[in-house]
Nucleic acid binder design. Structure first.
Lengths: 102, 102
DNA sequence: CCCATTAGTATCAAAAAGGTGCCTACTATA
DNA sequence: TATAGTAGGCACCTTTTTGATACTAATGGG
């Protein structure tokens, strides 16, 4: 199970993946960045590259200017939906209960 | 949802919590350490303190020698079960698919 | 010429996580 | 007497992760 943590590791992994799943369509880089704000470009890029490597996401480059790159959830990535739904539901129900002490 | 990642952050959080949930009874420190091997004392302690702070786990010290400290999942902690079950199921089904490139 | 746009890369710095070794208190056992 | 076992604390160090900033390419608009 340690591997799962590895997979969704990184502060931003879950929000990014969830967004891609919810949208179900190709999503542009900038859109993802706004969805997972305040993530930096660098971190978003890094996460997306990891997901691509794991086969969770597909990357499509449109050779235009300004550049347009779209990310789409794969079938494998989509299998995460029930789990992420469960996460989201838990957060809605119990999220407020948690202390946010740093 | 970033908060969730925060909650279960750390390589070991999920295995520890899951063990506590599955057992459902007070579990000793050493037992948890073996369950989440090869975690170090320091990290296990840190995680358990965090869980305690979040109200997911109760810590009970028995003033004996050698010391005995037991950790028990709380009601709040138990609400994580369906989500963690889902995680575990996903790993069983798709875990092997993932690349483990570092 | 200046500026904005997009999806990055490069570089540097800071913060978080993790590892190691040493110490304790008391008991039991060899 | 020496040693092991328990659940840590504390100090020090290395590695990993995250973040902040500046920079770029190719085009369109003013």
């Amino acid at each position: 199970m340690v591997a799962f943590v590895n997979l969704i590791s990184g502060k931003w992994a879950i929000p990014i993946l969830y967004r891609l799943i919810v949208e179900g369509r190709p999503v542009r880089f900038g859109e993802l960045q706004r969805a997972a704000a305040p993530i930096t470009q660098k971190e978003l890029t890094r996460h997306l590259r990891l997901f691509e490597e794991q086969g969770l996401v597909t990357r499509t480059v449109h050779p235009e200017m300004p550049p347009r790159v779209e990310y789409t959830i794969t079938d494998l990535g989509r299998t995460l939906q029930p789990t992420l739904d469960s996460l989201a539901a838990w957060m809605r129900t119990h999220g407020a209960t948690l202390s946010h002490t740093k």
